[in-house]
Design a binder for these strands. Structure first.
Lengths: 177, 177
DNA sequence: CCCTTTGAGTTGAATGTTCAAGTGAATGCT
DNA sequence: AGCATTCACTTGAACATTCAACTCAAAGGG
């Protein structure tokens, strides 16, 4: 007992660390909001729906099973189901029963593909305007490395999925998110 | 016309930039979710409500006007109003009509203050576990600087509010996050 | 065979956020 | 004094996300 570590004593952050932390927290709050706002404004969708479209567009046949897609866009099946319903009601994707069991394939329609091609440049431009061009290449890559480290702790599954996707493409393709 | 810049041609990101970007996007998606999850689980509140409590606790008299608080926690007045209603129904804060006009003061109750003191260490611990201890001091500060740059473009008002808060405290205090 | 389990999705209610509209006090104009 | 505006906030509906419950098909076990 006596030499047990006081696990509930948490060392506070010093002044500079706190300052950095607050900026980070502000960023993770504001950046997604800004990206969502651009997509909403210009395309009427949110980031999650955009990632669904991108995921499908990169996939052979522009088709993926719900569960694969949920993995790729890292959302729950439920969230995916709701989102696909929204996109389907716009005619951008369609559901089709697939081979076995209860499995469903989602396919990006021609309309959906055409819309994505219109949408993507604006989103990349926004990514450049808000982040890439502000930081410059070196700082961006450094930021990426830090993000990767943190992500491995925060959400190992997410991090792994990202590495895999990275291995798979290696070449060009669509703007991954 | 002939020498007009093609404003709609967007240079794509190269392979490494894209990789960094995807990690950043993943981070800004996953980190807020993780912080929210910890607060929800251990305290039944979200980050925004936590920031309200922290803001009030740092303020003289543990009291702030709605609009000041909205500025400090960077949310809309509407969001603030809803959130304060939730916190008030738990008895953690109370509304009181203030001097002029329609202005309302929000005060952190003793119960609320006591709860915050219970909650804060766990949240700081989580911040350390997920970010601070993972990166180490140097990388954290670098990340903070990058976050600051980006934030200035993404949300100048937010960035400014943060600098001001930073000037004001200079000393110790509660975990501003 | 029947029964249980697992896998893959869907559905609906609860929660939080936003957006548009409303409320009421103070202030400015004339 | 009378009226319009602005400020500071509240309210309620719409929307997205989560969570728990449900559906249905296929496998496995005995």
């Amino acid at each position: 007992m006596a030499d047990e570590v006081h696990a509930d004593e948490v060392p506070w952050l010093d002044h500079e660390e706190l300052h950095a932390w607050m900026h980070l927290v502000a960023l993770v709050e504001a950046l997604p909001a800004a990206l969502d706002a651009q997509l909403k404004r210009d395309a009427g969708i949110n980031r999650f729906e955009y990632m669904i479209l991108v995921g499908l567009s990169e996939s052979p046949d522009r088709t993926m099973a719900m569960s694969q897609l949920a993995l790729a866009a890292t959302g729950s099946l439920s969230r995916m189901s709701h989102a696909v319903s929204r996109l389907a009601s716009k005619g951008w994707v369609e559901r089709r029963a697939a081979g076995t069991g209860r499995q469903m394939d989602v396919r990006l329609t021609d309309t959906g593909f055409a819309r994505l091609e219109e949408i993507a440049p604006g989103h990349v431009r926004e990514a450049r305007r808000l982040v890439v061009d502000v930081l410059g290449r070196d700082d961006l890559l450094a930021l990426g490395r830090s993000a990767r480290s943190v992500l491995q702790t925060v959400s190992p599954g997410f991090a792994e999925a990202l590495e895999e996707a990275h291995q798979r493409v290696a070449g060009g393709g669509h703007p991954g998110a």
